[in-house]
């Protein structure tokens, strides 16, 4: 092992392909996006250098604020729903007495392997204001609470977030459950001998020991929420109006619909910075030190 680590040529040969591909596929487009954001450009014409004008325009664009707000709402609901329910389900499956563990574990994960398109079509049918399952259930139960789930400017973003939360909850559950399984049994036994209840055991032992896992889950959920695009594209097309736009949606609208590549790039840069800041904050405040047990 020591001999291998001292062989710099081998390390170079093994790491270079990955570094090269990463540079071409990730770093180069990022730099290009940043560079293009200083230009007025429709993708074909001669770009015109306008320095920070695109960023100034963003600050005066109502759609930008709608997109920021929607991204925040999406990320927040996604995080609470996925991490909350994912954790509760993992706690339940941690119990030995639970019947049909394997079936439950698999069924939680099924939505994850479905494509976003399939999931959206499924929920579009359920959300249909006239003939959809959800409103029909309310009707059968004689509830007057029937909604135009995707046609209401305030409700539609929440309705879409529920779909995304539901689909990838199983993914977060799998990570959390796997993390919980690594906690040594003797810690729980000690807590049991001390008379700790189940709830207290999880609050005082499981969750603190899972801090690193939760950090990863939190990053996945928040970044996934901030960069959301597919769900709204399929389910509402960003509408009604601009009510389900996110920054990714705004970027695509500007760059590929309005042919304003520079402005779209500026949106993309803000999105990248937003994700970067969120990741930094999470890494700064959650599980800073490595937990060993």
């Amino acid at each position: 092992m020591k001999h291998f680590r001292s062989n710099k040529k081998a390390i170079f040969l093994l790491t270079f392909p990955a570094l090269f591909i990463f540079s071409v596929v990730v770093i180069y487009p990022l730099l290009q996006t940043f560079y293009r954001s200083f230009f007025e450009w429709n993708g074909l014409s001669q770009p015109r250098y306008i320095f920070l004008e695109n960023y100034k325009s963003l600050l005066h664009d109502d759609i930008f604020y709608t997109s920021l707000y929607n991204g925040a709402i999406f990320a927040l609901i996604l995080t609470v729903f996925q991490l909350g329910i994912g954790s509760v389900l993992a706690f339940i499956l941690l119990e030995n007495k639970v019947f049909g563990k394997k079936i439950l574990r698999t069924s939680y994960f099924i939505p994850v392997v479905l494509s976003v398109t399939v999931v959206c079509q499924l929920w579009l049918t359920m959300y249909n204001a006239q003939f959809g399952l959800i409103n029909k259930i309310f009707e059968l139960l004689h509830f007057t609470y029937r909604q135009d789930w995707l046609g209401d400017t305030n409700l539609s973003i929440i309705a879409i977030t529920v779909v995304a939360s539901w689909q990838f909850m199983g993914y977060q559950f799998a990570i959390i459950y796997a993390g919980m399984k690594t906690i040594p049994e003797h810690i729980y036994e000690a807590a049991k001998l001390d008379g700790a209840s189940k709830v207290k055991t999880h609050l005082k032992i499981t969750i603190p020991l899972m801090a690193e896992t939760y950090r990863i889950c939190l990053i996945f959920a928040l970044i996934g929420g901030l960069t959301a695009y597919g769900y709204m594209n399929i389910m509402t097309g960003g509408g009604p109006g601009t009510s389900t736009y996110t920054l990714t949606y705004q970027m695509i609208r500007s760059a590929f619909v309005m042919n304003e590549i520079g402005y779209g790039s500026a949106s993309a840069v803000v999105l990248i910075l937003e994700c970067f800041v969120v990741t930094l904050i999470i890494n700064r405040f959650i599980a800073r030190e490595r937990i060993t047990y």
Binding site: D152, T153, G238, G239, P240, G241, T242
Partner: peptide
Amino acid sequence: DPKFATPFGEQLQSLVAGE
């Protein structure tokens, strides 16, 4: 023309949604 059509389309949708 997408410069007019895109925001105009968004306004039409908003009107249908109750604006």
